[in-house]
Nucleic acid binder design. Structure first.
Length: 290
DNA sequence: AACTTAGGCAACCGCTTTAAA
DNA sequence: CTTTAAAGCGGTTGCCTAAGT
């Protein structure tokens, strides 16, 4: 459907070390067919060399993306259902822009699809509801905006309703977004948390947490409450990654926690706790910040 | 009917992490 | 231990189309 600039066949290809010019832009049915048949025959992987082996004039990255987002047989097509949307909202509240993690909870949906759906639908929906799509917290009121403006950022915030996202960004208080939407780092910053799936473990985990864990880590009872409490605090303090290094969290436990989000009851509890704390924080904020 | 604008989404880009050499 | 290849991720781009003027 969407099309991309056909191509000045440039850059990305040269890294492949190929002499033939690499094709870019939309895929043709013939290319899809070639790729599908090749992957079905040879399996996924070795994307770098796949194009040559499959007879495609594409870079490996492009092939992988096409397969993952479009050709895979288990891809679910069609509109996002209400329950899927609801789950996306819940997971995003917890995970932030970790699209692959969110997608992992929605069988047949790709991270790209969810990301697009979020950007084009859900974020606007939240804004319409007066919620910040990044934090899921209430957006600053007009009064708060005026306040902010008075402190010094007079003009960026005050207007431009059309540029909703930008406005939100402009109004965003110093508080960093919870599950750090941009480049949440992992082991590099010492958290021991990698948001990516590791090929070594099958690529199906939610987080590769620090190996350290308490003996109780596999017990989700209790962990859930503590995690939610810790999570709420961490999120509100913008310390998501701190939380992730918690020694009580391991893959299974966190996975169970995510699964629990599908349960209305537990999620409602989480929200209630979070909201209560939010209100408390809000009061505190009014007292002193800035 | 012609033109403009905004929305949707596939594809690309740049970066990080992991595993292998 | 260091380097490099491979894979994966989130952000961004830009084309197409529908809606609005």
């Amino acid at each position: 459907m969407a099309r991309r600039k056909p191509p000045a066949q440039s850059g990305a290809g040269s890294a492949e070390g190929q002499t033939a010019p690499l094709k870019r832009g939309p895929w043709t049915a013939e290319e899809d067919e070639l790729l599908s048949r090749f992957v079905e025959r040879e399996g996924e992987g070795r994307w770098r060399t796949l194009p040559r082996r499959a007879g495609l004039l594409r870079c490996g990255k492009s092939c992988r993306l096409r397969w993952m987002n479009y050709l895979r047989p288990d891809i679910k097509r069609g509109p996002i259902a209400d329950d899927e949307e609801d789950l996306i909202l819940r997971l995003h509240r917890v995970l932030g822009n970790r699209w692959s993690l969110i997608a992992g909870r929605l069988p047949g949906r790709t991270d790209n699809e969810i990301k697009n759906y979020w950007n084009s639908h859900l974020s606007k929906k939240l804004i319409a509801q007066g919620l910040d799509p990044r934090t899921h917290m209430p957006l600053p009121t007009a009064a708060a905006a005026a306040n902010t403006a008075a402190v010094g950022r007079s003009h960026a915030a005050a207007s431009a309703p059309a540029a909703a996202d930008k406005t939100v960004a402009a109004l965003e208080p110093p508080q960093p977004p919870p599950p750090s939407p941009t480049k949440p780092t992992s082991t590099a910053d010492g958290t021991g948390c990698d948001r990516r799936d590791s090929p070594a473990d099958g690529g199906d985990d939610d987080f590769a947490f620090a190996a350290t864990m308490s003996p109780d880590a596999n017990c989700f009872e209790g962990f859930g409450d503590q995690f939610i409490a810790d999570y709420g605090a961490a999120v509100r303090g913008g310390r998501f990654d701190d939380l992730m290094v918690s020694p009580m969290v391991d893959d299974d436990t966190f996975t169970s926690f995510l699964d629990s989000l599908i349960s209305d009851k537990q999620f409602a509890g989480y929200l209630a706790e979070g909201d209560a704390a939010d209100h408390k924080d809000a009061k505190n904020d009014q007292g002193g910040a800035h």
